[in-house]
Structure formats: C-alpha cells, structure tokens
Amino acid sequence: MLESGNKYSEAELVILLKERQQSAFSYLYDNYSGAIYSVILSIIPDRELANDVLQEVFVKIWRQIDSYDATKGRLFTWMINVTRNASIDTIRSKAFQNSQQNRELTETVYESAGSIDTNIDKIGLRKLVHKLKEEYKTLIELAYFQGYTQEEISKIMGIPLGTVKTRLRTALIQLRQIIKP
C-alpha cells in the first residue's frame, strides 16, 4: 500500500510543497493520487471527467497549499476536502449545463441517487456507505457525495432540519463503526 512517511513526514512534505519543490509535488502525487482518484470516482463515475478533475485537484493542492493550516488537521483531510469540493462543483456545473437536468431539485436527486452505476458502489467510502440502512445511506449520499447542505436536504426530503442533523450524525457514527477495523 502507498503509505506516507517512507520518505517524508506530512510536516516535511508541507514545508517542501510551500517551498515549491518539484520533488515534493512528485512524491505527493505518487503517494496520494490513487486515494484521491478513488474519492473522485466515488462522486464522478465518468472516467474522462474524473481524469480532468484529478488534474484540477492536484493543481489546486499545489497552488493553494499556503491556505492549508496544519493546526486544523491532517494534510490528507484537507486534500480530500479539496477533492470532494472540486468533484461536487464539477457534477453541479455539468448538471447546470445539461438541459436534461432542468427539473425539480427533488427529482434530480432521487433520479441520480437511484441511477448510479453499480460500479460506483464498490469505490472507496461509498462501498461502506452502501452497508448502511437506506435512510442513512440517502442522507450521506446527499450530504457527502452530492454536497447538499443540511437545509437543502431538509427541503429535498421534507423532514425537519433538526431531524436531518440528528440522523446524519447517527449515520456518521454508524459509518465509523463500519470503517473501524
């Protein structure tokens, strides 16, 4: 497995990235591109599009490394959030450009949630989310993989915001139990 720390610690890597070192970028790509690609594919099933997003994500990580604050968390967590945001922006803009998507928000969500390629269910975190109860699965699908806010989910699903919040927390705790080795 491509574990980090064989060559650089995370702290060393961040310093070298901030010093604009090519070797650090190359190392970052070699070590994390697989994991990041997997996250992208769990959101964007289209490989062509996913390849473009992968490039976009690494360019963002490279150019925005100064905005990474190590006191707030791990480098990987930050990179995954950059990845997730870029992926969601892509499917959203894609959906926006696509006239077929010109429907009610509710319909779109359920349609896409239901029509997801089965292959995608075997990728990354989605593979684990798949093991959750239906109501939790839908919540995480909307929140994590499609990037809707809790207020939006409340409207989409027609349930109170407080319930969305509580259920999402419960869903995440259960997800953690599944991840836990």
């Binding site: 574990e3 591109s33 697989g34 994991a35 690609y37 390849n51 990987f76 967590t77 995954i80 990354g124």
Partner: peptide, 18 residues
Amino acid sequence: LIQQQAMQDSIMPPAEIK
C-alpha cells in the same frame, strides 16, 4: 482512519496524468 481507508481503496489513475 479515513486516510487509511482511502489509501486501501486507492485506484491508480492513468499514468500519463502525472
């Protein structure tokens, strides 16, 4: 935990992207 999980789920992107 999330990092380790993601690392395990790695999917190699096409080689030319790098």
